[in-house]
Design a protein around this nucleic acid. Structure first.
Length: 883
DNA sequence: CTAGGGTTAG
């Protein structure tokens, strides 16, 4: 054989060797023929060995060649290291190359760049880029592509795009690298834009393009275009590649179209374990836990489950709370010989905890040789979920001792919720200072949790302090602060924050509406309530059940029974809360018959009444004088629906009897109650006594109250009021004195009225209010007109020991609702209806006065007191004097 | 030189 023919024979033998032993035989031949010092054969061998994952052999070949190596050999060895993931080695040899006399060429750089990318070494990458620029290789297609890929992989998409834009020539790989970078770092819009741009240039995508852009389609939920791409994949044949099909599976699962995903899966000719995992995990994310597990079990013999399979199936078991299945999968994975990594063990902790098996969860936790933050978080969370808050705290303290710096925002979030649930302010404050020290306080969710914690521990001030110190706020932040204000009855701040939120970037969600609507209801802020209603229409929440329920309450408490009913009528779905809302609304307006009709309709519609709806219906009967009907409801609740009455039900029945002057019946009823009555129950009887003038009973009741509950301030105030009405001032001052000693103050009364988008608040006897003088003057005129109608002031409701009758009258005349009404009369056009809100009940005299005012000035006056609505019209009230 | 699947809270 001639030398030429033998070298071409060996060259062919080298190229065609399809496994390592063939390659080794060819290598031996090369050595036999003394060709191993040839740059050409050495280069071939290095390449071939790297192909068979034998970088060590590549290196020994490289070393055997004469010291004067050409650039081709250098490129081969760098490429060999790179291909086998030995990136530090690749960079080391690139360094050696630069130290030698040989200068790199454009074929050197793709591997070097890949090595930088593999090591996520942006500094080195930048340095290499500079060297490329110095040598003028930046316009090479392959170098450019490698650079785009490197920056894209590192998540530096801006730089990737810059290199891409500066490339004089691009090919499909350039596009693919860019799109894949966008896609895998969550820049789905950019990935999609890139794909559309590429299509604009009439470039035909390949399997890389398709599989890179599919996650973007899936996450952006662009269903139509996704289906189009699926069609393209079928037509172009790129769907013969398993990666593309796996991408299609994942996309359809993201679209929540498991059936479509299943169709793709069934039509796949080649499947790998990722195909199976994608389905199992996709079902899991769609909360199709049974399907996920079933698919796994049915296909056990079709593929080789790995740890990713295990983690998905186990999570499904956790959601299903299926301990037996979890243990089965756990054992199965162990039997298959997998060494479980920390991630799977962390999942196991969570799964066992979810199944309520804290003993096994703890065992897995104990068996973890390197516990990470998630391990600790998972076991702590397990105890929290299982209600053992103290053990959770104990473990947290242990964690802090062992590795404080590893506690992350999830750790703090969980423990802040523990301190909130335990109302443990001291612990919560400690967590707050820990978070501040650890430097993760800027985390939004932690800030939100702290706001909630302080609010629920009773520290609104600190709650607002955290809120004000937060640099960024999200919807949850705003919702939490508003509900904190509402919880404390600080509606002024609540309103302020709501206004601030509307001016901010924050997008309201369901919770926003579910907290602001009740706030409007409490404030009777009709205008704001309506605005919020419009707002939630714009955001598409009108069909939500809970929103409808909140709207019914808001409108009814704002004096718009009709709007309330309109919301009710439009609701496509109604639950017991909905019906309670509308029944309560009718009750507040004295529409007892309509309330009863609604109750019957509710029963007909198949809704089972709960204990709350009975409170609403008895309340409604009570406020409309429907005594028999109310009592019938109470009986029905006990006997037919087997609901044990609560204190509130008894209170309603006592109220029902008292309002209709069935005082002795009320007394009997109280005596027979199985539960100890409270102040509100006696109050109903006392009020009834005062209305009817049955002072004998009033005194008897008062005495009993004091005897039964000498220390309760609520009862004492009641009794004192009763004695005041009986004009037994000595007893009044005795009780008052003991109350003062206990530093107990009665809730001061106030009223408010909304005029020209502004809320005006009035306090009893307040002379500092706006237009005070004009108000008093107009009230004087009204009183003289009332006197002509036969009005005599009734001072029974003035509970203070005021010797001067005149002084008493002045106080009554100063009751806050009168000031608000007078203010309303002065500041609106004649004939305009007025709406006044009061935080307490309307007193008897004010009720009379308002009736007369409505007649004298010819206006409708709607008053909402603590209890219900009174519509005063032409000298009468809608409550028919039952309040 | 380019592609796909897993963990804790609310």
């Amino acid at each position: 054989m001639t030398r030429v023919s033998s070298s071409s024979f060996i060259s062919r033998a080298l190229s065609s060797s399809s496994n390592l032993s063939e390659l080794r035989r060819a290598h031996a031949l090369v050595i036999c023929l003394g060709l191993d010092s040839s740059d050409f054969f050495a280069g071939k061998l290095i390449d071939k060995y790297s192909q068979f994952r034998e970088p060590a052999s590549s290196l020994s070949v490289f070393r055997r060649v004469s010291p004067a190596k050409n650039v081709y050999l250098w490129n081969s060895i760098i490429r060999a290291f790179c291909k086998n993931g030995l990136f530090p080695k690749a960079l080391e040899f690139y360094g050696k190359l630069r130290e030698s006399k040989v200068s790199p060429d454009k074929y050197t750089f793709p591997s070097v760049i890949k090595a930088c990318a593999g090591l996520f070494d942006a500094k080195m990458g930048d340095l290499v880029y500079e060297q490329i620029l110095e040598m003028g290789f930046e316009s090479d297609l392959y170098v450019g592509n490698a650079l785009v890929d490197m920056y894209a992989r590192m998540g530096l998409l801006g730089r990737a795009r810059q290199v891409f834009d500066e490339m004089p020539v691009r090919d499909l790989v350039s596009w693919n690298s860019l799109i894949s970078g966008y896609s895998s770092h969550g820049y789905y819009e950019e990935a999609l834009d890139g794909y559309n741009e590429l299509r604009k240039w009439w470039i035909v995508p390949d399997s890389f393009t398709v599989s890179s852009v599919l996650p973007a389609f899936g996450n952006l939920l662009v269903v139509k275009q996704g289906q189009g791409l699926h069609g393209f994949a079928l037509k172009s044949g790129v769907n013969s590649v398993v990666v593309v099909n796996n991408g299609l599976l994942a996309m359809y699962l993201k679209f929540s179209r498991p059936t479509d995903a299943r169709r793709v899966f069934d039509e796949m000719v080649v499947r790998d374990s990722i195909s199976y995992n994608t389905i199992i995990c996709g079902y899991l994310n769609l909360e199709m836990y049974e399907e996920s597990v079933r698919f796994f079990l049915e296909n056990l013999d079709q593929f080789k489950p790995d740890m990713l399979t295990a983690s998905s199936v186990l999570r499904a078991c956790g959601h299903l709370r299926d301990l037996r299945l979890a243990k089965y999968v756990h054992e199965h994975v162990l039997r298959a010989g997998f060494v479980l990594d920390t991630t799977v063990k962390n999942i196991l902790i969570d799964v066992y905890a979810k199944c309520g098996d804290m003993i096994t969860a703890r065992d897995v936790f104990k068996g973890l040789e390197c516990k990470d933050t998630v391990s600790w978080n998972s076991i702590i969370n397990g105890y929290i979920q299982n209600g053992d808050l103290l053990e959770a705290m104990r473990l947290f303290k242990l964690m802090m001792m062992i590795m404080e710096e590893q506690a992350d925002h999830v750790t703090y979030l969980m423990l802040i919720s523990v301190s909130t649930r335990l109302a443990d302010l001291k612990f919560g404050k400690g967590l707050h200072s820990n978070v501040t020290k650890s430097g993760i306080s800027f985390d939004l969710s932690v800030g939100n949790a702290l706001i909630d914690m302080y609010a629920k521990c009773g520290e609104v001030g600190d709650s607002l302090k955290v809120f004000n110190s937060m640099g960024t706020r999200d919807t949850v932040t705003w919702n939490t602060v508003i509900s904190a204000c509402v919880r404390f009855g600080d509606f002024a701040t609540g309103l302020q924050v709501t206004t601030q939120m509307r001016k901010s970037e924050a997008v309201p969600d369901m919770a926003t509406f579910l907290v602001t609507l009740p706030m409007c209801a409490s404030l009777a802020a009709k205008r704001l309530g309506k605005e919020i209603h419009c707002c939630l229409l714009r955001f598409g929440y009108e069909s939500e059940l809970r929103i409808g329920n909140a709207l019914i309450e808001m409108y009814s408490k704002c004096g718009c029974l009709e709007s309330s009913f309109r919301v009710f009528e439009r609701m496509s779905r109604r639950d017991v809360v909905t019906w309670t809302g509308i029944i309560y609304a009718y009750g507040m307006y004295g529409e007892g018959e309509k309330a009863l009709e609604a109750f019957v309709e509710m029963e007909k519609s198949g809704i089972v009444p709960d204990s709350v709806v009975f409170i609403a219906i008895i309340y409604a009967c009570s406020h409309s004088g429907l005594v028999e009907e109310g009592l019938a409801c109470f009986e029905k609740m006990k006997t037919h629906y087997k609901i044990d009455p609560m204190l509130e039900h008894y209170a309603c029945v006592v109220d029902l009897l008292s309002r209709s002057q069935k005082i002795s019946k009320a007394e009997e009823f109280i005596q027979a109650m199985p539960i100890k009555p409270d102040a509100s129950i006696w109050a109903s009887v006392l009020r009834a006594c005062r209305t009817s003038g049955d002072m004998e009973t009033a005194e008897r009741v008062s005495r009993r109250i004091i005897e039964l509950n000498p220390d309760d301030p609520g009862y004492s105030i009641l009794a004192s009021n009763a004695y005041a009405a009986l004009r037994k001032w000595d007893k009044v001052s005795l009780i008052r004195k003991s109350l003062n000693d206990k530093l107990i103050k009665k809730n001061p009364g106030y009223s408010w009225i909304e005029i020209c988008k502004k809320v005006h608040v009035f306090r009893a006897g307040d002379t500092s209010a706006p237009q005070s003088e004009a108000i008093h003057k107009s009230l004087e005129i009204l009183y003289s007109l009332m006197a002509k109608e036969g009005y005599v002031p009734d001072s029974r409701d003035v509970s203070q020991n005021l010797q001067e009758e005149e002084e008493k009258r002045r106080l009554i005349c100063g009751h806050s609702e009168r000031l608000a009404i007078a203010f309303g009369l002065l500041n609106t056009e004649p004939g305009t209806p007025l709406q006044v809100m009061k935080n307490l009940r309307v007193c008897g005299d004010c009720h009379e006065v308002t009736k007369l005012i409505s007649k004298i000035v010819g206006r409708e006056i709607l008053v909402r007191d603590a209890n219900r609505f009174h519509l005063f019209k032409d000298g009468t009230c809608s409550c028919k004097d039952r309040w």
